[in-house]
């Protein structure tokens, strides 16, 4: 864990990184990435207990798994700016011979990543395995995950959600990026999912809502509360209500920027709304 003097500055720089990564290669997923910039920043800068030298086994560390791998731009930016790999490497996002694949992978040896994700719905199961290993190893560190709300349409999640409750996986905090959007439109238009809170509770989880998932202090309090609920025999779900495209006015409140990069003019407008703070890569 490292601490930064100004987390809002950190978040703003992460937004710039996201926009510049996807613009350069004219591909990638800015919407969900921007929506989760605050969450990743709080998690990696203040909450996650990790060691400076990356080891796959994560012994004596908290672990994070990104299940919705398409929001790799925010993951890469925060990992780089938290010291996992050189910040300049963000220049290689989605380019040939890069460790920064379109979707995160262990295959190229990128520090900070412990599983490939991209094909949706697999991260919760992997996290449960890592949580079970922590218990066997008597390592009381925690497992954190992030999942898209639309991603919960994949059935494997519900196998995992059922297993986690049934087997008292209480060292797991699963956060759902609850922005209500997916590629084809709003969740309620594509496949109405009802109440996620009711569903998780019915499966036997602790559930907390963070009503403003783009507010640093609200995320902080949410994660603190989630942590306080671990070790009580139940897994913890944090429903993080975010705005897709947060921080760039024309990208907010729409699914249009889920998987589309800004053009030159749009980038300029977006960056003007998020001036440089820590220095561009």
């Amino acid at each position: 864990m490292s601490s930064h003097s100004s987390l809002p500055d950190f978040v703003q720089q992460v937004r710039r990184d996201i926009l510049r990564q996807v613009h350069k290669v004219n591909s990638g997923h800015p919407g969900g990435s921007l929506g989760c910039a605050e969450f990743f920043s709080v998690l990696y800068q203040e909450v996650l207990r990790y060691k400076s030298d990356f080891k796959m086994n994560g012994e004596g560390e908290d672990l994070f798994f990104l299940s919705n791998g398409h929001i790799s731009p925010v993951y890469y930016s925060v990992l780089a700016r938290s010291g996992f790999f050189p910040i300049d490497e963000l220049n290689t996002f989605r380019l040939i011979d890069s460790r920064l694949q379109g979707h995160p992978t262990t295959h190229e040896g990128l520090p900070g990543v412990r599983i490939a994700s991209g094909s949706l719905g697999q991260g919760m199961s992997v996290a449960i395995g890592a949580a079970e290993a922590k218990k066997l190893n008597q390592d009381d560190h925690l497992i954190y995950t992030l999942h898209g709300d639309g991603e919960l349409q994949e059935g494997q999640n519900w196998e995992a959600i059922m297993y986690a409750a049934g087997n008292n996986i209480d060292n797991l905090i699963a956060t759902i990026d609850y922005n209500g959007q997916q590629i084809d439109g709003s969740l309620k238009d594509v496949l109405p999912m009802g109440s996620l809170r009711a569903k998780f509770e019915a499966f036997g989880w602790h559930v907390i809502d963070v009503e403003n998932g783009n507010d640093i202090d609200a995320i902080r309090k949410g994660l603190q509360k989630a942590k306080s609920m671990t070790g009580q025999g139940k897994p913890v779900c944090m429903l993080l209500h975010t705005v897709m495209g947060n921080g760039v006015d024309f990208m907010m409140h729409t699914h249009a920027w889920h998987g589309k990069a800004p053009n030159d003019d749009q980038l300029e407008t977006a960056l003007a709304q998020n001036p440089e703070t820590l220095g561009d890569y």
């Binding site: 796959m56 086994n57 994560g58 012994e59 672990l63 412990r114 599983i115 719905g121 697999q122 991260g123 919760m124 199961s125 992997v126 996290a127 449960i128 395995g129 890592a130 949580a131 079970e132 290993a133 922590k134 066997l136 190893n137 390592d139 059935g155 494997q156 196998e159 995992a160 059922m162 297993y163």
Partner: peptide, 16 residues
């Protein structure tokens, strides 16, 4: 729940 089983197995390897 075989899909979950494969995922949990993958996660267990991370812990050695």
């Amino acid at each position: 729940a075989e899909a979950n089983m494969i995922g949990i197995a993958a996660g267990l390897t991370i812990g050695g």
